[in-house]
């Protein structure tokens, strides 16, 4: 099954200076997922203030500055993985380098609606 690991973290963590150790931990995590044959894709995201949100209502395109909703936590990164079951996905979520302060939401992808490559 394919799962999205969605990393949510508080605004204050986006505001901190970038930590090179964290960046290399993130790369190592991606490498480990790849080596396990699970990784389909993913990456970290810039701060929510860099976001631009588009909506289409009644055929009219609206573009506005900022993320889609003002909340305390924002999406900071994601990975799409192909894992045999939820327990394996949860195990990898717990290994995420940001798991110590961020929340890692594990969501199954809609089975057949989304055509994506398989891991490897």
């Amino acid at each position: 099954m394919k799962y999205a690991l969605l990393v949510h973290q508080a605004q204050e963590y986006f505001d901190r200076p970038k930590d090179p150790a964290m960046a290399s931990a993130g790369r190592a995590y991606g490498d480990a997922l790849q080596a396990a044959g699970l990784l389909i894709g993913g990456g970290g995201l810039e701060a929510p203030q860099t976001a631009t949100t588009v909506t289409l209502r009644d055929g009219k395109r609206h573009v506005h500055d900022g993320p889609y909703a003002e909340t305390k936590e924002y999406l900071a990164g994601f990975a799409i993985i192909d894992a045999p079951n939820l327990d394996v996905a949860l195990e990898w979520a717990a290994r995420h380098p940001l798991a110590g302060h961020a929340s890692i939401e594990v969501r199954p992808l809609l089975g057949s609606h989304f055509a994506l490559g398989t891991a490897k």
Partner: peptide, 10 residues
């Protein structure tokens, strides 16, 4: 069913 919780012994 949808989250794929496995039927295994931990």
């Amino acid at each position: 069913r949808d989250a794929g919780i496995p039927f295994t012994i931990p």
